[in-house]
C-alpha cells in the first residue's frame, strides 16, 4: 500500500462531492471543503492528467471514495477486475472513507448503471454478507454501506430494511452510510413510517451521512420523490438532520449534488448551512433510537 496522502478527517466534517470543473479552484484554495467525495468509477483510468490532478487533491483534502458499480446486492460475486481497480484506487489515494450501496447493477455480463433495489430476503442477506466480506478482505478495511432511495416496494420482501441493515452490520462488521435524503424519499414513495425506520437503524455503525436535494414527479399518481441530486437540500431533510444528526456524533456529513451542478461557492454555502444545522442539532434534544 502506498504511504498515506490524505489528511485526517474530523468527525463532524462537512464535505462536498468532487467534480472536475472545480478541480483548479479546489487546488488553488488552502482547504475549501472539509473533505471531498468522489465516485470511484470516474477515477479508475490507467493514466492521464485527471489522475495526476486527483493525486494533488488527495494531498490537500481528506477523501471519501464512493463506489457505485460493485453490485453488492447482486446474485453474482463482485467482478474481480472491477474490484481490483477499486483496490488500486483506494491504495493510491488512501481515502478516509470507502463506501458502496445496498443495491445491485450487474447481471449476466451487463451493467445497468443505476442503483437497483434489492429484495430483502434471507437469501439476499446471505449473498450481500458474502460480497461485502469479499470486498472488505480485498480492501483490508471497513466498507460503509448506503441505504437506498427506493421507488418500488418489492412484494417478495420478507425482512424490514432497518433489520436487514442491522444484520449486515452485525455479520460483516461493515459501517452504515446513512443517506437522510434517501431515507426520506423511500419513506414517501413506499409509505414507510420514517421515524420508526430511523429509530430502528444501527446508529452505532453510522460512519457518514449524506444529504442531497430531490424532486417530485407529479405526473404519476401518487407522486414519486426522485433522488436526482439536482437541487439544494430540502427543508424536510434539513429538519431530519437537525433531529437525528446527534445520534451519530462521529459521522462526517456530505452534501451531494450530481446534476445541475452549482458553482463551487454555492456548494460550499450549502456545506456551511449543514454546519449551522448541525450546531443547532447539538443544542436540541436528540431523537435517539429507542
Amino acid at each position: 500500500m502506498s504511504p498515506s496522502l490524505t489528511p485526517p478527517l474530523a468527525p463532524t466534517a462537512v464535505g462536498i462531492g468532487f467534480k472536475p470543473q472545480h478541480a483548479q479552484a479546489l487546488l488553488a484554495a488552502s482547504r475549501a471543503a472539509d473533505f471531498l467525495e468522489l465516485h470511484a468509477e470516474n477515477h479508475m483510468a490507467a493514466g492521464g492528467p485527471a489522475r495526476e490532478e486527483l493525486l494533488e487533491l488527495a494531498k490537500r483534502y481528506p477523501l471519501s471514495v464512493h463506489g457505485v458499480g460493485l453490485s453488492l446486492g447482486g446474485a453474482e460475486r463482485p467482478d474481480p477486475a472491477h474490484l481490483a481497480r477499486l483496490v488500486e484506487l483506494v491504495n493510491r489515494l488512501s481515502p478516509a472513507l470507502v463506501s458502496e450501496h445496498l443495491a445491485w447493477s450487474r447481471l449476466d455480463g451487463h451493467c445497468y448503471n443505476d442503483l437497483l433495489p434489492v429484495p430483502l430476503t434471507e437469501e439476499s442477506l446471505a449473498l450481500l454478507v458474502r460480497n461485502i466480506d469479499i470486498v472488505q478482505q480485498a480492501l483490508g478495511r471497513r466498507l460503509l454501506i448506503e441505504n437506498p432511495s427506493l421507488y418500488v416496494t418489492i412484494p417478495i420482501n420478507t425482512l424490514d430494511e432497518a433489520d436487514f441493515l442491522t444484520e449486515l452490520v452485525t455479520r460483516t462488521g461493515c459501517g452504515l452510510l446513512l443517506d437522510l435524503n434517501n431515507a426520506y424519499i423511500s419513506a414517501h414513495n413506499l409509505g414507510r413510517d420514517l421515524d420508526t425506520y430511523l429509530a430502528a437503524l444501527p446508529w452505532h455503525a453510522v460512519g457518514e451521512m449524506h444529504l442531497a436535494g430531490h424532486s417530485l414527479d407529479t405526473a404519476v399518481e401518487p407522486p414519486l420523490r426522485i433522488d436526482d441530486h439536482g437541487s439544494p437540500v430540502t427543508e424536510a431533510v434539513w429538519s431530519l438532520y437537525r433531529r437525528w444528526a446527534s445520534a451519530a456524533p462521529e459521522a462526517p456529513t456530505l452534501i451531494e449534488w450530481d446534476t445541475k451542478v452549482p458553482t463551487l461557492e454555492r456548494w460550499l454555502a450549502e456545506a456551511e448551512l449543514a454546519r449551522t444545522h448541525r450546531a443547532r442539532a447539538s443544542r436540541e434534544p436528540t431523537r435517539m433510537p429507542a
Binding site: L116, P117, Y151, V152, I154, P155, I156, N189, V220, L224
Partner: peptide, 11 residues
C-alpha cells in the same frame, strides 16, 4: 412481483 410499474419506470 417486481413492484409498482410507475416505480419501475423510474429505474
Amino acid at each position: 412481483e417486481l413492484g409498482r410499474p410507475a416505480g419501475l419506470d423510474v429505474y
